[in-house]
Each structure stands twice: as structure tokens, then as C-alpha cells.
């Protein structure tokens, strides 16, 4: 059975965090959807709160420290990414963007990504479409069509709002699982310089 790696990036700040709660729901649904398609999943969670200072240091020094490097490699080496941010001042949070800013520009090219966001009210829900999706489009990631937004009211139990959230989570997870299963398993490159052009190519201007 093929085993896929799911990297889960959560930018929630409080404990417990509704952002992490949504991330966990999306993850559980994706693992289940993969299993339905005959594939196993390994989940690796990156809680950005734990890297808040590492990120600030990386901006100042120009390089990520060992802890942040491990988090970056978790995300860039995964078969798929579930990325969830709280909405701060009409957009993804600064912490979330900070993490995206330390990724190499090609690090997520072609990577299947499921987007999620949380906020106190549903009035922010289009942040997923006017901020999150363009950000990942710039990175040339493959975002699945359904992005999942959860406002406070969505956490109400029973039918109604809560049921709709569960349906959106399942639909998004199914879309992500479909994209992932259609692809070869992601191999972490053994030689980071394998595609450096030869000097003959450099001289011909093929740098």
C-alpha cells in the first residue's frame, strides 16, 4: 500500500486554537479519503506558533535555524499540504505569511494544497479566495477547488451550520485525496545540486 505524507501547517495562536481544530478536521478527513482510495497517510504537523522567534531570526540573519529548517523540510518534502490560518486584519496572519516568506520560491511548485481559514464571523470567508489562493497561485502550488472556512458559528453542534462545515471538510478532503492519488509519491531529492547546469551550459547562457 502506498503511503503518503501530509504536512499540516497551522498558524493558530491560542491554545486550544480553532485554526488547529479546523486543520485537524481537514487532516482526519483527508486521511480517511486516502484510505478509501487504498492509500495510507503519515501526518506531520507544523505549528507555526512554535517557530515565531525562529521566523523573526530568519528574517534578520537571512537563514532559517535548525528548528525552522526541519519545519520547512517537512512541508516541502510532503506529498500534500493542508494550510490553515486565522484571519487577521482582512488577510492571512503575519505569522502565516512569514512562514511562506522563508520558503524558496519554487519549493511548493506543483504541490497539492488544501486551504483553510478561521475567523470570528463568516464575513471574512472570502479571505480564502482573495488572499490565500492568489498567494499559493504565485507559488505555483495546485490548490484544490474547495477551500474551507470556519467561523465561530460553524462550531455549533448538530445539524445546520455544523453539518455544513463537515460536508465542506469532506468535499475538500476528497478533492485533495483525488489529486494526491493521481501522482507518484514525492521523493525528497538525494542531491540538492543534481540539476545545477554544467559550466558548458553556463557559458552558453543556459544558467
Amino acid at each position: 500500500m502506498t503511503t503518503r505524507t501530509l504536512a499540516v501547517v497551522s498558524a493558530g495562536l491560542s491554545t486550544p486554537s480553532s485554526t488547529r481544530l479546523l486543520a485537524d478536521r481537514l487532516t482526519a478527513a483527508t486521511v480517511a479519503a486516502l484510505r478509501e482510495r487504498g492509500q495510507d497517510a503519515v501526518v506531520e504537523v507544523v505549528e507555526l506558533r512554535e517557530h515565531a522567534r525562529d521566523l523573526a531570526d530568519a528574517f534578520v540573519t537571512g537563514f532559517p535555524n535548525a528548528a525552522l529548517r526541519a519545519a520547512i523540510e517537512t512541508v516541502t518534502g510532503a506529498d500534500a499540504v493542508i494550510a490553515v490560518t486565522p484571519v487577521f486584519t482582512a488577510s492571512y496572519s503575519g505569522l502565516f505569511k512569514s512562514f511562506v516568506d522563508v520558503l524558496e520560491k519554487d519549493a511548493l511548485t506543483g504541490k497539492p494544497v488544501l486551504l483553510g481559514a478561521t475567523a470570528g464571523t463568516a464575513r471574512h470567508s472570502l479571505v480564502l479566495e482573495h488572499a490565500m489562493r492568489p498567494l499559493f497561485a504565485y507559488l505555483r502550488a495546485v490548490t484544490v477547488p474547495t477551500a474551507v472556512f470556519a467561523a465561530s458559528e460553524d462550531w455549533a453542534g448538530g445539524e445546520g451550520a455544523g453539518g455544513e462545515l463537515a460536508a465542506r471538510v469532506d468535499r475538500a478532503a476528497g478533492e485533495l485525496a483525488d489529486v494526491v492519488t493521481g501522482r507518484p509519491a514525492s521523493a525528497r531529492p538525494a542531491d540538492p545540486f543534481a540539476d545545477v547546469p554544467s559550466f558548458e551550459q553556463l557559458l552558453r547562457g543556459e544558467a
Binding site: G62, N65, F193, P197, F199
Partner: peptide
């Protein structure tokens, strides 16, 4: 830039790694 390491290697020139602003794993590679 590994391309500069390739340039140094092509000519048989020396390669100097700044070393001081990056972790050693990077210099090593």
C-alpha cells in the same frame, strides 16, 4: 550559488565559502 562552485571547479580555481552567515550543513554541501 552552486553555479559559482561549478565555475571555480571548471577553471581549477579556488572556492571560498563565506561560511559565517549560514549553517555548516550548507557550507558542507
Amino acid at each position: 550559488s552552486p553555479q559559482i562552485a561549478e565555475q571555480a571547479a571548471y577553471y581549477g580555481d579556488g572556492f571560498f565559502s563565506n561560511h559565517i552567515f549560514w549553517p555548516k550543513e550548507h557550507t558542507q554541501r
